[in-house]
Design a binder for these strands. Sequence first.
DNA 1: GCCGTTTTCGGCCCGACTGTTTTCAGTCG
Length: 560
Amino acid sequence: MSEPATVAAQLRELSLYYELEGDKHRAFAYDRASKSVMAAQGLHRLVDENRLEELPGIGPSIARVVSELARTGSVPVLEAMRSKWPTVVVELAALPKVGVLKARKLFDAFKPANLEAISLLCEEGQIRELPGFGKTTEQKIYAAIEKRRTTGAQVLLEDAEDASAAVAAHLRGEPSVKRVEVAGAVRRAVEVVDALAFAVVGDDRAAIAARLASFPLITSVERETMPIVGHFADGMRAEVWVGAPLRFGWTHVLATGSRAHVETLRAEAAARAVDLDTLYAPDEQRVYRALDLPFVPPELRDGTDEITAAYAGDDYSDLVTLEDVTAAFHCHTTYSDGRNSVAQMAQAAAELGFQAITITDHSAAASYASGLDAVRLREQHAEIAALEDPPVRILRGTEADILVDGSIDVPPELIDELDVIIASVHQRYKADEAAMTERLITVMRAPYFKIWGHALGRYVMRRDPIAVRIDDVLDAIAESPAAIEINGDPHRLDLDPVNARKAKARGIKFVLSSDAHSTKGLGAVRYAVAMARRARLRKRDVLNTLPADELAAAVRPRGP
DNA sequence: GCCGTTTTCGGCCCGACTGTTTTCAGTCG
């Protein structure tokens, strides 16, 4: 049966077709049904028991569609829509600043064969002549197609993981396939993924290519290439690297990349007269061993200096792991914009194996998130104190806004009552570089311990980082009572690995956090761990790997 | 197509923003 994420993607695709047909409300219904399928628990069971209509937004008609998609991977209406509407319309609608309506207008006016044709029309200045379009829009479309040409489609790591899991499960359905591993940028935990990749053990390439082609979201497959490449309707690619079992190690390395990492390995192999393509290596460890290298964790294979560092003696065995993390850091509750109570968050943290949790709701200045003033903060502290036998140690904290003047939104008399302060920019993101740098340095130098929250304020693919002289701020932090958060919210992943490496080089400490706004959100800490590993952080670089008592002492604003 | 009732049809999500307009259409979150 198809994965829920796959069914959801097909419903979204149907939604887009209905919108193209002008049936706005049906499109909305399918979009809502798609979200519902995504959020559903135990979709397969609901299908089996004919209970899909229990899901919100799913009535008799969509229930039939979902059931058929889940069971067979397709449905006639989707196939009909795919042959009626050429790929280029879908691709146009997916471009930033171009929606379904503009895509439809462009298609009706020009009947373009592909994005290339639209690009050409931009160059000729023809797009701007269309009613509703202008010079600016034309330039944006041109730039978007240009970007698409160089980088392909791009999705968040989190979404790429879901898609990869679905494709991997599908490939495992081919009888001649012995093993399927998710590889590529997903395995390397790159924030933005532009191609899915898989390492497969099998001896029947044709059968594997055919299996890939039958994945519900894939529209075409290049079968003769190495790797086999499948194309999704939205421009995403799936690369499938096939290898024999005794040489799977090298296949796995090739599929994982990065390109620069692989090239470096090839060069080292050539220097040692090792033939990687025929090397006996059932696993990756043996590939690296053959080159006198320790196992290089996937997150580090970015092609910078990970090989050089390994030859210089770093065996990467002490990189921080999820198991090292002792405290659920940076958590919101119903006091501000979270969905669960303090007690529920503490319970969920305990169930995930944490020893402690930091409750850090927004401060008063974050009024849009119902930030807490001193009165409500003390109410929360009283509630925490009243909890009988809490399942984990609870640190009373705040995520305080960094105000424009470089002060932190915590009344001075409250600092002594707090166990931890996270200081974050939530307003006036667009301050100029000099002002923002000054503002942050002032905050970091404040004479009590604080943790810089979601440092550069980016939203991956949606909002650029703040403009700031990062080196100056890091220099200030290095000599101040301050640490830096690596925020595991899949949309933030902030501070990013490149800058985190710079911070680590200055001896700055980190916390790995989830920025959870619900019990479910606590799991996002694994992304923080992944970013930390990419930054080559060790357990000793991360404060919330300490036992709860030591952690509490380390982050207390005023010290012991 | 779904949903909720004013019970079998009529409304469905909305505000900020941007670019294209000259009062609005379309995108995005």
